[in-house]
């Protein structure tokens, strides 16, 4: 499956590279778009020294960590959110006649390597924040874990979004509001949001484990909402549960398609 994935992705990359000018422009634009995204954070901190009790570098740390997970998934998994388009155009059938899983084929469909510009931006921001905050290994070991956790959570969200589209073929924007909204939510410390919203993204949809809970550990801070310290380490477990749910939903979605054909 991994081999099939990279083979498909590589073929699309070559196809994109066939138009080098367009390719270079897209990478550049992706980077500019990402730069303006982080500029918003900088503009906010041009007007204040702390946001909900967090400093500029701390916010950039949370922003970069979530951004890295999100952009990796945006590059490698997000193509799955075209399920409803494929159903409407009748092109989903062509995936189902091939001897490979539908998930692998859909996540690589029109794989767009130019999104890598955004991954780079997130990595740069995260790297800067780690250096500026002087985070050492004694707490920094959590950073790779949290990025990996974030990748699994976002990948699961996209898969769920794709699975939902098997039923809601007419509302793809509902599911993209859900995935991109999750990214937007995790860009800032959850301390800026209302308590009930944070409870929701901790216990229902585990977005708090993308960067907030493990990030609090790395930054050595207490949770303003007062959750116990053990919560900082629950990320991988939460991600795994969500991934299992997503896998089940995806199977169910395919099954639904095969019993309705539309």
């Amino acid at each position: 499956m991994v081999r099939t994935y990279f083979l498909l992705a590589w073929t699309w990359t070559r196809a994109a590279a066939a138009y080098p000018a367009s390719f270079a422009l897209m990478v550049l634009l992706g980077f500019v778009a990402a730069a303006l995204d982080v500029a918003v954070v900088l503009i906010i901190f041009a007007n204040t020294t702390a946001l909900a009790g967090f400093s500029r570098e701390e916010v950039l740390f949370l922003y970069g960590a979530a951004g890295l997970s999100f952009t990796l998934c945006d590059t490698f998994v997000s193509n799955i959110d075209r399920v409803s388009q494929h159903i409407k155009a009748g092109t989903l059938d062509t995936f189902l006649i091939r001897p490979a899983g539908a998930w692998v084929q859909l996540t690589t469909d029109r794989f767009n390597p130019t999104r890598a510009g955004r991954v780079l931006q997130a990595a740069v921001v995260l790297g800067y924040a780690i250096a500026a905050l002087g985070i050492g290994w004694e707490r920094g070991w959590m950073i790779p874990v949290m990025v990996a956790t974030g990748v699994v959570i976002f990948a699961a969200l996209w898969t769920l979004a794709g699975a939902v589209q098997f039923v809601l073929t007419d509302a793809p924007e509902v599911t993209s509001a859900f995935t991109y909204g999750s990214n937007q939510l995790t860009q800032y410390p959850l301390a800026v949001y209302a308590r009930d919203l944070v409870k929701g993204v901790t216990y229902v949809l585990p977005l708090a484990f993308v960067n907030w809970q493990p990030g609090l550990y790395v930054l050595d801070r207490d949770d303003p909402f007062g959750t116990p310290g053990a919560m900082r380490f629950l990320g991988p477990a939460a991600a795994l549960v969500l991934a299992l749910l997503a896998a089940l939903a995806w199977r169910q979605g395919i099954r639904h398609y095969r019993s309705t054909g539309s």
Partner: peptide, 23 residues
Amino acid sequence: QRTTLWWDLPLVDSFALIRHLYQ
């Protein structure tokens, strides 16, 4: 009514993919 080939890829690339997918 619709192709099973990859729309934006040259024919040879589609064939090469099929070779891998079908082993």
